[in-house]
Design a protein around this nucleic acid. Structure first.
Lengths: 136, 136
DNA sequence: TCATCTATGTGCATGATGCATATAGCTGCA
DNA sequence: TGCAGCTATATGCATCATGCACATAGATGA
């Protein structure tokens, strides 16, 4: 019980990830070139979506939402083998959004480090030292 | 637009936090002594819930859920001034849960660092180098 | 022909969380 | 005396992110 996955809010298993982490990962993967959704599913493995894979429907829906928000633009690629692919590329707005995400994620990183620092006993909990007189 | 908060999934604003980060924070704050909910609201400011405060209802509901799961135990404190307080303390199960959370959060930390590393251009995206022949 | 892989997409359910609101005791002020 | 405000806990409702089941459809190979 509780080994990498939680007794999930989502039926069987749910990874403990950063909230909406999928969005900045897609933006980052799209930064260098045009990619289609199915290929992004593979690229996401690199960012913690390997052990806890994200569902394909979530990726496709997120891509359509990003396009609706002007962060990416898509075009159909009908040539080549297999069913047609929708190729996405990042827009200027999407690049700015990625930058904003990164700024937030650096803050998240600080918070996470502080939490682990306190857990490891290297820092006291502030409200405890300021309210020590209450119960000690 | 998009400055620390998102055009929210939640009406006005929603912080980009670690998923369910509230739970391990409460467990960590309860590790050292008995605390009541209202006091935990103040202690949470230390863990990134200062700029984007968590709603009190969320904290109280989480505490009841933790108690239902045997991770904390509560008792009423009727003495003292003000309305009665429900004092919570960590159980052994809760301590184990905290340890499991920390293990997961260290993984989250690795993923986050990798993301920022790639963003800063210090690492290539793996699926790009392995599939270069596709479009380049 | 039929299974399988690639590729995209919709419908539905659930969990996490914010907002509004309720209750109630206590404090202090006018 | 009454009322505002603080402490403290709690419920109802709405919304968003996400997983699961399922649908569609071309290509490939047995």
């Amino acid at each position: 019980m509780r080994s990498g996955r939680r007794r999930g809010p989502y039926g069987k298993a749910c990874p403990r990830r950063i909230g909406r982490f999928l969005e900045p990962c897609l933006l980052l993967l799209l930064r260098s070139r045009e990619v289609h959704g199915y290929e992004l599913l593979e690229g996401l493995r690199e960012f913690g979506f390997g052990e806890n894979p994200v569902d394909s429907s979530t990726v496709y829906r997120m891509l359509r939402a990003l396009e609706a928000g002007g962060q990416v633009i898509s075009r159909w690629e009908v040539e080549g083998s297999g069913p047609p692919r929708r190729l996405y590329r990042l827009t200027h707005v999407g690049g700015q959004s990625l930058n904003a995400w990164v700024a937030d994620l650096r803050e998240t990183d600080k918070v996470l480090h502080h939490f682990l620092h306190v857990y490891d006993g290297h820092a006291a909990i502030e409200y405890l030292s300021s309210k020590k007189e209450n119960s000690l």
